[in-house]
Amino acid sequence: MADQDRFLIVDDARLARKMVRMYLLAIRTDFDVLEAADGDEALRLIEERGAPAFATIDFNMPGMNGIELAEVIQQRTPDAKLALLTANVQTSMRQRAAELGLTFLAKPVSREKIAAFLDGSA
């Protein structure tokens, strides 16, 4: 069961994680924000701290890619809302995200994109 106050950011780029955190906390200050630089670290954090209600996941990362990580998180926490946040905006990538039921967010991230993801309108 996902914790409604927990938000996971998975991206190998520190800048990208900082940007998501900044926009997120500008919208809601009470999130417990977890950051991971790759899929393995994300799964370890979930194991230790519990499942997030929301996660933004980069596609192109060392180790497992964002789609593979999203599949693992979905199996473990079906009620988590997941977004693929990527600079790879090819139609094929959007389709793969849609097939998995992931929200697709194109980089660069903005406050509006995070707000739309949180309220389900993205």
Binding site: A13, N60, A87, N88, V89, Q90, M93, K107, P108
Partner: peptide, 10 residues
């Protein structure tokens, strides 16, 4: 990453 991916995706 963002610039090159935008270009390659297009």
């Amino acid at each position: 990453n963002i610039i090159l991916n935008a270009c390659l995706s297009s």
